[in-house]
Design a protein around this nucleic acid. Structure first.
Lengths: 212, 212, 212, 212
DNA sequence: CATGAATGAGAGTTCATTCAT
DNA sequence: AATGAATGAACTCTCATTCAT
């Protein structure tokens, strides 16, 4: 009897928490849609609450401010990409390097493709916004850069990567990847052959452009 | 008499026009400083007129709006870079391709270095601002891309550039250049050896990263 | 059986009523604390329900509005003081007038001292709030005034009080008492010798300040 | 010629300053009217700008905030009264003390009567508003109190004032004066005989109420 | 009865732009 | 041409109150 009641109470609490989490997500989703459609500055709180079909005050029950929800949104997106990159195993042996890199490129782009809105957030809306956002992006790109330069040094050690300034080279690779992502973003047609494109970008980074 | 008066009037007109042009430039300069220091949205008209030491209303005698002056500023910057790129002669013969490309890379960066404010404008402030600015940037990058892909095709024809998707590759090169520019922008120390860096970026694009 | 049930029901009803009354009082107490600590306008319903440890909606089961609970609170306080004053017996004979007045002064201040919060409510929070509160305070001070002027007239009749405008004088006495109360309120030290102060205020009102 | 131009320029500046000062005053006057009519909290910026017939933004050209204009208004009023009290000469000799005090009482009330709105501000709107206002009022009443207690001590020295706690007594006098002011404020009829009332309040403070 | 998530009217303030001088 | 006071639309955020559970 007592247990039942307890369960019931627990059930209520759990359900309430779930409901709250669901609503939070609803608002986040709506905000992402609006932010990526209109841009951060063109987006009014009014737009978000309308998109989310909630009242003005409700928004502030879940988020402190327009800035706060954007930061959270951005953090979510960055984390999601981080996880895809972090999962890559660069231990020598296993798959050929080319195959592994190809996997990473594929993964990153699949995240972007999953929702173009994410990409727009990172590549357009979050650029030059405020210092905190700058720091978040710097951190994100910094992590990617570190992973890339580490990989390059690894490659040099085992003789797969030619000698050179790994730090700088890592930035250049990152730049080409970002541009590629921006390209995918712009190209509205879904007939992009990501598989083929991934190979092109990889080969560009590996071999460069010269004939020999 | 009449002629004299006319001359005088002409002189006046000319001098007035010059004065007007000078004042315009003063305001543009001031605006560039403020925009790149505080960012587009954080910049108030009040900031610009204070920096330019003019009255509020005077601003609107020279520019239609905050948007308008930013657009003009951006156009100036983009044109300046365009000219440096457009001036490159890619006729087969002449200098070795590597040398020519190196020249172009050097020129582009010298424009950026001339005033970091320009770079910030293009790489940060103008990103995700509004549709017209988007169009301007698209046009600018589009021209760079076209020039790059034309060059690549040229290179393929004369056997210097390996076969491949020239369109996509041109974007990737552009991406690495942009990232490089952003890097130069961030690195506040003036001890950057642009000469050496230019070679690294060029070699990256030419040879890629692999050992063979 | 039926009786039993009825009894039980009655018991339940009574207990429920008591519980309800107790809760009401809990909320009133909490509200008094918060109102006098933060002031009426700085107090949010959120503050009251937190102080009372009840849910938001519960508040409205017991009181109609923020205004309503303040009114009730104020009425409670005013009534409490009224009772102390009303209880004074000024029939000629009995105690000497000075002793009687001293008793009244003592009583009033003891009410204030019992809880500074009360005093703050009357002397600060309720001032200039809204028309209904104005009316309550007017009524309260009006009753005090009437009682004072009646007393003065009585005093005149038996030759204890000098001739003069009893109406106006009553207001002046009231003013000095209010100021005194405010003084006690401000003086945070508990080492105030109310006994001595009561005499000073009484003598001030009786003899004034001149040497002869 | 030059002087003329200079004069003209000066004239312009002077006129501009005057105009600005006039407008400031217009807004202050309007604000005083509204604050005293509706109370501080019931007053919206919208009410003030409507009363002053200015645009929303104009208000903020002259005052930082709703709080700021109220503070300035209050300071003005307090200063005006201060000046009337400060001007009193209590040097022994000259006029009889009673006459001097009567003058002060008259002056203070004439300030109040000049505009009931002032009185309402001090006695009602500014009570329990915020800490800064509290400090202003405390300072104001503190100065009055100091002046009163100094005067009392002076009177004691020359044998005009009986022995007693001058500090406390000064507060009591102040209390009676405040109450009196409040009374004048409430009594909307203009047929108040301030001359007679001033005497009553003075005699109350001098002789008290008892027959002997 | 109790709860607390949801509501939405309404507030103060900012700032690009206009216009009388 | 130059000035800067004036404008008012539009914004974000608060909080007393309601109501479904």
């Amino acid at each position: 009897m007592t247990t039942a009641t307890t369960h019931e109470a627990d059930g209520r609490t759990v359900r309430a928490k779930q409901k709250r989490a669901r609503r939070r997500q609803t608002i986040l989703d709506a905000a992402l849609r609006v932010f990526s459609a209109k841009g951060y500055h063109q987006t009014r709180i009014a737009d978000i609450i309308e998109e989310a079909s909630i009242a003005r005050g409700t928004f502030y029950l879940y988020f402190d401010s327009k800035t706060a929800i954007f930061h959270e949104l951005l953090e979510d997106v960055l984390t999601r990409i981080d996880e895809n990159v972090a999962g890559v195993d660069l231990e020598p042996g296993a798959l050929p390097v080319r195959e592994q890199l190809l996997n990473t490129v594929r993964k990153i782009f699949s995240v972007f493709r999953a929702d173009r809105a994410f990409a727009k957030l990172i590549l357009r809306e979050a650029v030059g916004l405020d210092e905190e956002v700058d720091a978040m992006l710097d951190g994100f790109y910094g992590r990617l850069h570190r992973w890339l330069s580490d990989s390059l040094r690894n490659g040099q050690r085992i003789g797969l990567i030619r000698a050179g300034d790994t730090e700088l080279t890592a930035w250049l690779i990152l730049g080409s990847v970002k541009q590629f992502a921006a390209l995918v973003l712009t190209t509205s047609d879904e007939d992009i052959d990501l598989e083929q494109l991934s190979e092109v970008i990889l080969d560009f980074n590996l071999q460069g452009i010269r004939a020999f």
